[in-house]
Nucleic acid binder design. Structure first.
Length: 422
DNA sequence: TTTGACACAAGTTCACGGCC
DNA sequence: GGCCGTGAACTTGTGTCAAA
């Protein structure tokens, strides 16, 4: 286990750029609030979990957060800034615990699309798991601790510039390891004329920008997205990055996950959980949620996880997923949850026999596939590719049905689907 | 033991098909 | 025709495993 040699992981150690805890329930959506208020009415008393939760907040205003017109602004209890290293210092933890004593036990209620309601209960042992997860993360240094997107900005830069760095770093980060992302960010900061800033991005030739970020995944598309986003930032946001979820997701190349993380890191606001594959995978592995998509995981998790954990959960689980609960080759021996808190520990080592059979289901001519000599960038202009159906069969026996699904999907995502290949 | 093939990680966009 | 859900495409380094 990789530990930080005798250096206690202080708050700032893990958390620069993610320095503030989530505020209370200031950002509940109208829908959630409506449901929660209805719950109170249904109880025949204004004593629902949520009313009590809301009442627990002291009046205030969220930190500069722009609310969408018409959105109710709930009272906010401004908590002192804390770092993600220790993530919840003792004092805050005590506050959180006090609040949890009020909130826990009763299931929250969440509306689903068809108007029905489903009860979403927090997993019984989630707090125990959570605390152990925190402890493990203090002991293990993960790439996200030192090279996470929010840490790659120039610390000497102005807040506005740092926000821009955060956004660019996030845009580069998808499908790219933190370590690689860090190298690309360094190149941008060192080799762009004037350093990494909006002006330099606007001024640089796409080809040159692409060269600088070539190391990251999907650099061609990211070059395009960054250039387009820079124009939008200049024209519509006064050169700063948007401070709303909608504004961020309106930028090309920025989706829900990045938007939530960016809001947290750049604007110190938490409106949702940033769910990447680590969060999605581990939450399903633990049985915290039972979902098929990261977006589904986000909704399910937000339905029961106290809001003050929304920000750190991403950080905790990403690092945990990078170092211990690896997608392949979980290190259960190093995990303190393996003593009964995690079902993965009781799974047999993966012996998933995957049988593949390829057959052509439609095709163009082989000559069409000479990509080396093919330069047309537009997908629509490309010749029809050979599509080969790859059927994947699972031949392993595992007792628990749920475990089977989780286990296999670890190895073969999209198991039920077929994959196309050239 | 080495080598090569294959699978995976990582998030977003967009084309396409089904349904209303 | 519009909406919605599904899944391919995009890139490149790394890990795993079977075959030589």
């Amino acid at each position: 286990m990789q530990t930080r040699a005798g250096v206690p992981m202080g708050n700032d150690d893990l958390s620069s750029g993610l320095s503030s805890p989530p505020s209370d329930l200031d950002n509940y959506s109208d829908e959630e609030r409506e449901v929660k208020e209805e719950e109170g009415e249904k109880d025949g008393k204004n004593n629902s979990i949520v009313s009590r939760f809301f009442r627990s907040s002291s009046p205030g205003k969220s930190s500069g957060a722009q609310k969408a017109p018409g959105k109710a602004i709930a009272p906010v209890k401004k908590e002192p800034t804390l770092g993600l290293g220790d993530i919840v210092p003792t004092l805050i933890r005590e506050k959180v615990k006090k609040r949890e004593n009020i909130v826990e036990k009763k299931p929250r209620v969440k509306k689903v699309k068809d108007g029905e309601r489903v009860k979403v209960e927090a997993p019984e042992n989630w707090e125990e798991v959570y605390e152990k997860l925190r402890e493990m993360r203090k002991m293990v240094e993960a790439p996200v601790d030192t090279m996470g997107c929010e840490r790659l900005g120039d610390k000497a830069a102005t807040p506005k510039l740092r926000r821009f760095h955060t956004l660019i770093s996030l845009m580069l980060s998808s499908q790219t390891k933190d370590t690689v992302n860090a190298v690309a960010m360094k190149k941008l900061q060192e080799q762009l004329p004037g350093g990494l800033c909006l002006e330099s991005i606007l001024g640089v030739e796409p080809k040159r920008l692409d060269e600088l970020i070539r190391i990251v995944g999907f650099h061609n598309r990211k070059t395009e997205y960054i250039k387009k986003a820079a124009v939008i930032l200049r024209d519509k946001h006064g050169g700063d990055i948007p401070d709303t979820f909608e504004g961020l997701t309106a930028l090309p190349g920025v989706g829900p996950k990045m938007a939530h993380l960016c809001l947290s890191a750049a604007w110190d606001r938490t409106e949702g959980i940033g769910v990447d594959v680590h969060v999605h995978r581990i939450c399903n592995l633990w049985g915290w949620v039972k979902t098929t998509t990261p977006e589904g995981t986000r909704e399910a998790l937000q339905a029961w996880l106290p809001r003050d954990r929304w920000r750190e959960i991403n950080f905790l689980l990403v690092g945990f997923g990078q170092t211990i609960c690896l997608p392949r080759g979980r290190r259960c021996g190093e995990c303190t949850l393996s003593n009964g808190l995690c079902r993965a520990a009781y799974m047999e080592p993966k012996k998933v026999k995957v049988k593949k059979e390829k057959r052509v289901i439609s095709e163009g001519s082989d000559e069409d596939f000479d990509d080396d000599n093919y330069a047309a960038p537009e997908r629509s202009m490309r010749p029809k590719r050979r599509r080969v159906k790859v059927e994947v069969k699972e031949e392993e026996e595992v007792g628990d049905e749920d475990m089977l699904v989780a286990d296999i999907e670890d190895v073969v995502p999209n198991l039920a689907k077929f994959r196309y290949k050239r």
